[in-house]
């Protein structure tokens, strides 16, 4: 199942999207490029609506705040908490005034295990400015597609976990106007992230 040509093709397509997004960032990120019209669109990013413990939340609610978004799942024991800790550390390297303006969004692609209430507590553990969101499968898939991310529920018959979630692990840097500014590797350092955030403040 893992190595099927279709899956590989899909992953390659996702990666191609990443690459093209990077190469043509200046073109893609011009004002007005926020809406993705179809799956083939090269324009990554855009508004979306998901569910928080306090009700529906849209990216457009964060106008005026630079946002770092991460897509993963809470029972991920390693990659996700490390990435979120990098995000939180990056925030903490800003001065108080700057730190008060930045926001983090953690999107869980595992709504069966991660309720909005659980995600609220989970996210606050890393940083008070980090909110945890999830939604219906359709809402989640929309965000994932808009940002060129990838996930797949992988059933693990031999594990007490039941299933794991294969997922891309990137930090999406979104400017105060809601435009995707840059897609960052999760291996970025807190200092590098803070520098990029200062550029958006």
């Amino acid at each position: 199942m893992t190595g099927s040509p279709l899956k590989t093709l899909r992953i390659l397509l996702v990666l191609t999207a990443f690459l093209m997004a990077g190469m043509t960032a200046a073109f893609l990120l011009r004002p007005g490029a926020s809406e993705t019209s179809s799956g083939n669109s090269l324009r990554l990013g855009g508004d979306f609506q998901l569910q928080s413990a306090a009700g529906p939340v849209s990216l457009s609610d964060f106008r005026g705040h630079p946002v770092v978004m991460y897509i993963g799942y809470a029972s991920c024991p390693d990659v996700c908490p490390t990435s979120l800790a990098v995000m939180a550390q990056g925030f903490r390297r800003l001065d108080m005034e700057q730190q008060a303006r930045v926001r983090g969004i953690f999107v869980s692609v595992d709504p069966d295990r991660d309720s909005p209430e659980k995600l609220a507590e989970y996210s606050a553990f890393f940083h008070p400015n980090l909110v945890g969101l999830t939604g219906t499968r359709a809402q989640i898939d929309q965000v994932v597609q808009q940002y060129g991310a990838y996930y797949r529920i992988a059933n693990l018959d031999n594990s007490a976990l039941g299933y794991a979630v294969d997922h891309s692990s990137r930090l999406y840097l979104i400017d105060a106007d809601g435009q995707l500014n840059e897609v960052l590797s999760h291996s970025i350092t807190p200092e590098e992230l803070a520098t990029k955030l200062r550029g958006l403040l």
Binding site: T2, T8, I11, L12, V14, L15, F18, C76, P77, D78, V79, Y150, R152, A154, L156, N158, S159, A160, L161, A164, D166, H167, S168, S169, R170
Partner: peptide, 19 residues
């Protein structure tokens, strides 16, 4: 309750955890 041996692999930018 349970302890398992796991590994992570990164394939084409996708993180996969397996027993």
């Amino acid at each position: 309750a349970t302890v398992e041996l796991h590994t992570h692999s990164e394939q084409d930018g996708v993180m996969k955890m397996r027993r």
